[in-house]
Amino acid sequence: MKITSKNVFTVEDGNHTVAPNLILVVRGNTRRFVFRYSENGKRTDKALGPARKLSLSDAKALADELRSKLALGEEIKTRRERKEKENTPDVPVFKTYAIETIDRLQEVKRWRNKKHAQQWRNTIEQYAFPFIGEKPINEITREDVLNLLKPIWLEKNETASRVRGRLENILAYAVTDGILPSNPAAWRGNLDRYLAPQSKVKVVKHFEAMPFSVLQDKVRCLIPANNRTRRVILFTILTASRIGESVPARWDEIDFKNRVWSVPPERRKDSKPFPHRVPLSTQAIDLLNSIERQGEKIFDAPNRKADSRYSLTGLLKRMTGTDATMHGFRSTFRDWCAENGVPEILAEKSVMHQTGNAVVQAYQRSDLLEQRREVMQRWADAVFEKIED
Rank of each mutant, 00 (worst) to 15 (best):
H116V: 08
E348A: 00
L24M: 09
F131E: 00
K42T: 04
W336P: 01
E84Y: 01
I233A: 02
A174D: 04
K317T: 00
V204F: 06
P136S: 07
P151A: 02
R36I: 14
W187A: 03
M1I: 08
K114L: 11
Q126F: 14
E168L: 02
A301K: 09
A358C: 00
G341F: 03
D64F: 09
V175T: 11
P136D: 07
S213L: 06
G165R: 01
A306E: 14
T101G: 06
F35Y: 15
L346Q: 09
D300E: 10
R104E: 08
E155L: 02
I223E: 11
A117S: 14
A380L: 14
V34F: 13
V11Q: 06
E86M: 09
R162N: 05
V263T: 05
N227G: 13
P275G: 15
V232K: 07
N258D: 13
L48F: 04
D177Y: 03
N258S: 12
A249G: 04
A63M: 01
R330F: 12
M326L: 07
K114D: 05
F256L: 08
L195S: 09
N21M: 06
H206W: 01
V232C: 07
D144K: 15
P130G: 02
F9C: 00
Q361C: 00
P130F: 11
